[in-house]
Amino acid sequence: MKKTITAGLVGALLAGMTGAAMAAAPDWSKVPAKDITVFYPGVSPIEWITKGTDHGGARGMKKGETCADCHHSETTDMGKKMASGQKIEPTPIAGKAPAIPVKVQAARDADNLYVRFSWKQPPASGAAKMDAKNPVKVAFMLEAGGKVELADLGGCWSTCHVDSRTMPGAAETKLKYVKGGSLADGKFYDLYQWRSGEKKGFNGYVADKRVMEGGQALVSADGKLDGDTWTVVFARKLAGGEGDVALESGKTYNFGFAIHDDSAAGRFHHVSLGYKLGIDTSADITAAK
């Protein structure tokens, strides 16, 4: 009887804590949304992006223009060219969605940042499932101070290299990385991911290699499919530990995200261009109290 009472009390306490945590979440109906279309990128690593003979935008980047400056309104058309195999995709997947329109919201309280993604589920391609365990994965990355080369211009693209796994001819053991990446020097991306099948979140980083766990900032990551609409919400502490970008009021951070739809894996995802996340300050996406 004593054990039963104790278990009941603990259960009630945990339920109360969960309710309090949910009550502290933002009222998303009052948080502005940024419309960002993620697109299928094909084989477009950073080496391709910065090579002027392959990518005309390389000249603009040398002048300080961001990828979003040129392509924010063109992502759907870009995705169509690559998903169809018309451009930089040697192994197109029939029926692959070329792009996915996403609503992105962010808010914060005294301790946490909340980021919410919502989108309509595209039709399935019918292709073999690369990650049968997880029909959908959502990830976002943050970078502070522009210490990662080209992070200010291309968002997460500096983690995508021609020799990374699932690129044509690359070794499967070669993970995403940052050229000259170093946690000690602050040259890294802070990484968060939610997986639909495993129903859990991950908090890692990308420096000299990608590490999916070990971060200390993630509070929760939850997602659900309601009808044909996915909603995924991350909560992370404003402060963090090794591999976490510490967030401060009045500052902006490089921000990008990706959706692995249709049980995709590796580079066969949909990606955003690079944007800015502002904490209490104007940016592409602003997280305010």
Rank of each mutant, 00 (worst) to 15 (best):
A184F: 01
G146L: 11
G250D: 01
W28Q: 05
G145L: 05
A144E: 15
A21D: 07
L218Y: 04
M212H: 15
V138F: 11
P168F: 13
T229C: 11
V104P: 01
T286E: 14
I100C: 08
F268C: 06
V271F: 10
A124Q: 10
M167V: 00
C156G: 13
A21Y: 06
P41M: 03
D190T: 10
G241D: 02
K209N: 14
A221N: 02
S158E: 05
D109T: 15
P26M: 03
W194K: 00
E149M: 10
T231V: 04
I88Y: 12
S220V: 05
G11C: 15
K289Q: 09
G201I: 04
E242N: 09
K199E: 04
W157L: 07
K251G: 08
D54H: 12
W157P: 00
F140C: 02
K103I: 05
Q121T: 14
N134Q: 08
V211S: 08
K200F: 01
M141G: 14
L9N: 09
Y40E: 04
D226H: 02
A288W: 02
V206N: 05
I5R: 13
M212Q: 15
N134A: 04
D208E: 14
V271K: 06
M167W: 05
A235S: 15
G8L: 13
A127Y: 00
V148Q: 02
A21K: 12
T159C: 10
P168N: 12
K34P: 05
V162I: 15
T6Y: 11
K137V: 11
W157R: 03
G154L: 00
A99F: 04
G155P: 05
P135E: 03
V219C: 01
R195L: 09
W230E: 10
L183M: 02
G85N: 08
G52K: 05
R165Q: 14
P26K: 03
L238P: 06
G11I: 14
G215E: 01
T66C: 07
S44K: 01
K237P: 04
R59M: 06
T18Y: 13
K129Y: 07
Q193K: 14
A20G: 12
S249R: 04
C70H: 03
T286H: 11
S164D: 13
T231S: 00
G8K: 06
V115W: 02
T159S: 14
K81L: 12
S249I: 06
K187L: 01
